[in-house]
Write a protein that binds this DNA or RNA. Structure first.
Length: 270
DNA sequence: AAAACTACCTGAGTGC
DNA sequence: TGCACTCAGGTAGTTT
């Protein structure tokens, strides 16, 4: 499910309900996530949530004692509900705030994560080697060019590599390559610099546009209020196999790269 | 070093 | 209805 725009949408929705509020209780209903939810997560009980930010697809909530790290994996969502709302299957974590509202992490596939970090989150193993944020100043044509230099791997694989740039998942990788007019199978080292310029712009543009529309709901993504995102109707190629390219009407092609589906227009992307 | 592949897990959809 | 099968938005870790 969630790529960067969906995580950003969720975080923005959650923030007003948690910033400056005290945590009353943390309930771990099922600790089986990508990694077992640590007992230390209860450290946050009684703490005030001072900050909430996103790094790559991780959400980080800072308190005086430590930082809560949440990841939505493939099928997760994080909602704000009244604490007395009946639990659903796969509601693995529930954090009750002092005002009776509850944050609930729901994740059927359990590829998501809930961890407790003591010390500087930037030094945590999951975060310290991440590449630049795509919407930040550190992601530039120069950094992308350097990352692509000499690589024989397909350009799509490279922009999905979190060491190169974070947050570009399977949907937006296909979309950005379409917008930049680049064949996703092209060796990264062979993509020309003018194309890389377009690619950097395309990645920024597609992510920002999706955030504006509340993300993409393909099947089951919902934001903190349980509402879907509306970017799906704007997708140019993803999940449109056989349908006409919105530019040239050539049928959109689906291939598999690195065991993931890739969608592209064989005429517009060279 | 880089590329290819595996593993984790549940649920929805398809075809027989 | 039911069974077998495929596919899905992520990414750390292992193998080649």
């Amino acid at each position: 499910m969630p790529e960067l725009p969906e995580v950003e949408t969720t975080l923005r929705g959650v923030l007003p309900h948690v910033i400056g509020k005290k945590v009353r209780e943390v309930m771990v209903r099922d600790k089986r996530m990508r990694w077992p939810v640590p007992d230390e997560i209860h450290e946050m009980e009684g703490c005030r949530i001072e900050s909430g930010e996103r790094r790559a697809k991780y959400m980080l909530f800072g308190t005086a004692k430590g930082t809560l790290l949440l990841h939505l994996g493939m099928s997760g969502n994080l909602r704000v509900l009244p604490a007395d709302t009946p639990f659903k299957k796969h509601d693995h974590l529930a954090i009750t705030m002092e005002d009776g509202r509850q944050l609930r992490l729901h994740d059927p596939r359990r590829f998501g994560a809930a961890l407790w970090i003591e010390g500087d989150p930037a030094e945590h193993a999951l975060l310290k080697d991440l590449g630049p944020e795509p919407l930040g100043d550190e992601f530039t044509v120069e950094t992308l060019h350097a990352a692509c230099a000499g690589k024989t791997a397909a350009i799509k694989q490279v922009i999905m590599d979190a060491h190169v740039v974070v947050g570009v998942g399977n949907i937006y990788a296909s979309e950005a390559l379409f917008m930049a007019g680049i064949d996703p199978r092209q060796a990264a080292g062979k993509v020309t610099k003018p194309k890389l310029v377009k690619l950097v712009q395309a990645i920024r543009k597609v992510l920002a546009a999706s955030i504006k529309m509340g993300g993409t709901t393909l099947r089951d993504f919902v934001n903190e209020s349980g509402e879907p995102g509306y970017f799906k109707q704007t997708l140019r190629v993803y999940d449109r196999e056989g349908e006409p390219c919105r530019v040239c009407e050539t049928p959109v092609k689906r291939i598999v790269q690195g065991q993931r589906a890739t969608y592209f227009c064989p005429k517009c992307q060279k």
